[in-house]
Simulated scan of single mutants.
Amino acid sequence: MPVLTDSKTLNQVVNCLTENIPIQTQGKCEQQNIFEILIRAATQRDSIENTSKVLKNVPTSNDIRYHLEKYSDLNSLELDLNTALQSRLPDAIREGQQKIAIDFNLIPYYGEPSPLEAPYIYRSQAKSGTCSFYAYATVYVIKKNKRVTLAIKAVQQQNTRGSNYHLSFSTN
């Protein structure tokens, strides 16, 4: 089995995102640049602002945010992300039945939410200096001690008590 280097892994992830998540771009800001900066920021636990300053010949953070704001429909984004996650499932996951697990995740939110963000702000016990969070659930399998995420679903505050969630995924 070939070993993935950091650059090969980055290329695989960028290709997967580019194939499955359409972002209308213009000028020097191409989809590939946007995903490379987002992935680097995420893996370095850094901001888009700082990441775009550190790298050379890349779009500014304002350019990246401008293009990301075009993706304001969270349902479409979820569907596209889940399609991307499922597009690269290993054959061992696709074959046969699997035991799945579901995690509930909270990302601290600071500030005053916009009307678009407000439904997605989840209130919980104080953690990291806030009681407000973005919340999401992930569905995954663990195969040979490796976790493979199958789907992700944003959790809205009004849907957290007794509501049914529909996470659609297919391993076919």
Results as ranks from 00 to 15, higher is better:
K53T: 01
T60V: 03
E78M: 09
S72D: 14
I64C: 05
T60M: 01
Y71S: 15
R40W: 06
I39V: 13
N57V: 02
A41D: 08
T60E: 02
R45F: 06
S72H: 15
H67T: 02
A42I: 05
V54I: 15
A42S: 13
H67E: 06
I39A: 03
I48H: 02
E69A: 12
S47W: 06
D73W: 01
R45Y: 10
I39N: 03
K70L: 09
N62I: 08
K70R: 14
V58T: 02
V58P: 01
E49A: 07
H67A: 05
D63F: 07
L85C: 08
L79K: 15
K56Y: 07
L79Q: 14
V58E: 03
I39G: 01
R45Q: 12
D80A: 13
L79E: 15
S72M: 07
E78W: 03
S47D: 05
S52I: 03
E78Q: 13
R40D: 12
K70W: 07
L74N: 10
K56H: 13
Q44L: 10
E49Y: 05
P59A: 06
A41H: 02
A41R: 02
D46A: 11
T60A: 03
I48D: 00
E49D: 15
L74F: 12
N82L: 12
Y66K: 11
S52L: 00
V58S: 01
Y66S: 11
N75R: 09
L68E: 04
T60F: 00
E69C: 12
E69Y: 09
L77K: 07
Y71Q: 15
A42C: 10
Q44V: 04
P59K: 03
R65M: 10
D63W: 08
N57A: 05
R40Y: 13
P59C: 08
N50A: 10
D73C: 13
L74D: 07
Y71N: 14
A84Y: 04
D63Y: 05
K70F: 04
S61I: 01
E78N: 05
R40M: 10
S47M: 02
S52T: 14
S61V: 00
L68T: 09
